[in-house]
Each structure stands twice: as structure tokens, then as C-alpha cells.
Design a protein around this nucleic acid. Structure first.
Lengths: 145, 145
DNA sequence: TATTGTTATACTCTATAACTATA
DNA sequence: TATAGTTATAGAGTATAACAATA
């Protein structure tokens, strides 16, 4: 299949293609641990913000309360996260279990290693430049629902 | 919510965040035309490869035959694509209708314009560097299904 | 009144498996 | 035997809307 030249010029298309590579790679690495990119990101967010509530977690992940609910259900059933009493009677305080902490540690090395392999098409300097350009390109996303 | 430092260092995470911006922007632009990023990409691919069959299209989009089927059904019902007789009696030859050609033209300007706005956080030189780094980072994806 | 969690429900996208008709 | 299209079905993932408890 010939690629339309127009596509190649669209920055969003290039980003999508690269994202596809990295995302499917991450899914392969995370799957044996029962994790997905979103679930793993949730673990890291809870780790960095112990005691946060579900709505805040959902906002950080750009999903609504209902979806955050399902996400936390899954992580709780997997024994990685627990709901404790929150700052008032409406809210849950989310915390990693020991298993959750262990899961992050177990995944970390494999994920970094496979990303290093993917990024190896660029030399060290190029990787640095890419990181900084991507950081500059980012904006804070608006929260939903 | 505090962002975990570990996430910021993962290239895949940075790419995902940037992709999220561009993807949701593209969805907003395409929605009034009844299109999504995948559907629009399909139109451009058929435009660049008139007479291609569904399986090849699916391969280029990294979806299987069944999903390509549904995709083409939608585009056909929207009057943008038509199935003609293919090179043998098993295959369909996909072609854009006049409406399909018009849809691409209508979308093109708005999409490029909104991407320009998103990319404007980088100057011209930085955009060029980013494009070339992303192109270099890409690999051809394996086909599925 | 507003917010948090929750539940029920539905929609979209994609995959798998099996069928058919061709090759 | 293998391939293209098709169909039925199921599974993620997410959204909307409404409800209860609490603020």
C-alpha cells in the first residue's frame, strides 16, 4: 500500500504511528502482569499521590468518575490497590497494597528495557532532543466529567 | 495530582500524552464530517491506492479483515466509498466516490490549520527536527489478521 | 445545591471463529 | 488448501444518566 504524501506531512499522523509502536509494545510487556498502560499509569499516580480519591485519579487519566470506578475495581480485585476511609464520608482514599508496590517494581525494569530497545533507532543526543521537544509540545489537558 | 517522575522519563508516556492532544483535536475537527481519524486515514489510503481490496486496507490500518469490513461498510453507507468488481470474484475494489473526494478536500484545510495551531508551541526549526526524529523512530508495523 | 461514589445501560471499536465462494 | 469477504458473537473501554449519601 502506498502511503499518501499528505499523511506523512501531518504531525499528528507521525505521532500516531510512533504511539502505536510504543503502545503495543507496552501492552505486550504489561499483559503478563495483568496490566494495561492505563492501569499501570494509575498505579504510578496512586504511588505518587497516596490517599487520592477516585475522581482526582480519573481526572489525571482523562476519564470520568464512572470509568475511574471500574478501573479501581479492577485494581482492587487484583489486590494491587485498596480503598481506605477518605477525608470525608463520601470519598475513598486510594493506596497501593504491598502487592501493588511490588508490581510496579517488577514491571519497571522490563518496561524501561523494552523502551530503550525501541528508542535505539535514535542516538543518545537525538533521544534527548526528542524528549525535550515532546515536553515542550505538551499542554495540560482539560478535565472531563 | 503530582506526576510521578518515573512517568516523565518514559518516552512512551511523553508520546502518549502528545498523541492524546493531537488525537482529541483531530476527533473534534473530523466529527462534524462524520469522520474519525481511522476513517479519514482510510479515505486517504483509498485515494492513494484506488482499487485496493479490504484486506490490504485493513493491513495498512493494522486491523483485521472483519474490522476492515465494518469500516468500509460505514464509509459506503456514508456515500464516501464504493465497492466495485475486483481483480477476481472474491475481492472488492475500493474507490472513492465524488463525495469522498470532496470530503477529503473539505477536511484537509481545517485539519492542517488546527494542527498548525497545536504545533505552534514549537518554532519552524523545532517542528522540522521533531518530524524527522519521529520519522526515524518509526518502524513498519507487522500485519494482523 | 454541589460533590463522591455507585449502578445500570448503551455505544464504539476490535477480535475470534466459523461459513461461503472463489482461487 | 488457501484466500477474500462475510456474519455472528463476545470482550474491552468508555460514556451518559440517574440515585444515595454526604457536604
Amino acid at each position: 500500500m502506498k502511503r499518501p504524501a499528505e499523511l506523512e506531512r501531518l504531525l499528528g499522523y507521525q505521532i500516531q504511528m510512533v504511539h502505536l509502536d510504543f503502545d503495543s509494545n507496552a501492552r505486550d510487556v504489561l499483559a503478563p502482569f495483568g496490566l494495561t498502560p492505563v492501569r499501570f499509569t494509575a498505579l504510578l499516580l496512586i504511588d505518587a499521590n497516596p490517599g487520592c480519591d477516585q475522581t482526582a485519579l480519573g481526572r489525571a487519566l482523562s476519564v470520568n468518575r464512572s470509568s475511574a470506578m471500574k478501573l479501581v475495581n479492577g485494581l482492587e480485585q487484583a489486590g494491587l490497590v485498596e480503598r481506605r476511609a477518605g477525608r470525608d464520608l463520601r470519598t475513598n482514599a486510594l493506596h497501593l497494597t504491598d502487592e501493588g508496590v511490588a508490581a510496579i517494581a517488577a514491571v519497571r525494569e522490563r518496561l524501561t528495557e523494552s523502551e530503550t530497545r525501541l528508542a535505539s533507532r535514535l542516538d543518545a543526543h537525538e533521544q534527548e532532543v526528542l524528549q525535550s521537544l515532546l515536553a515542550k509540545l505538551q499542554r495540560r489537558r482539560a478535565a472531563r466529567g
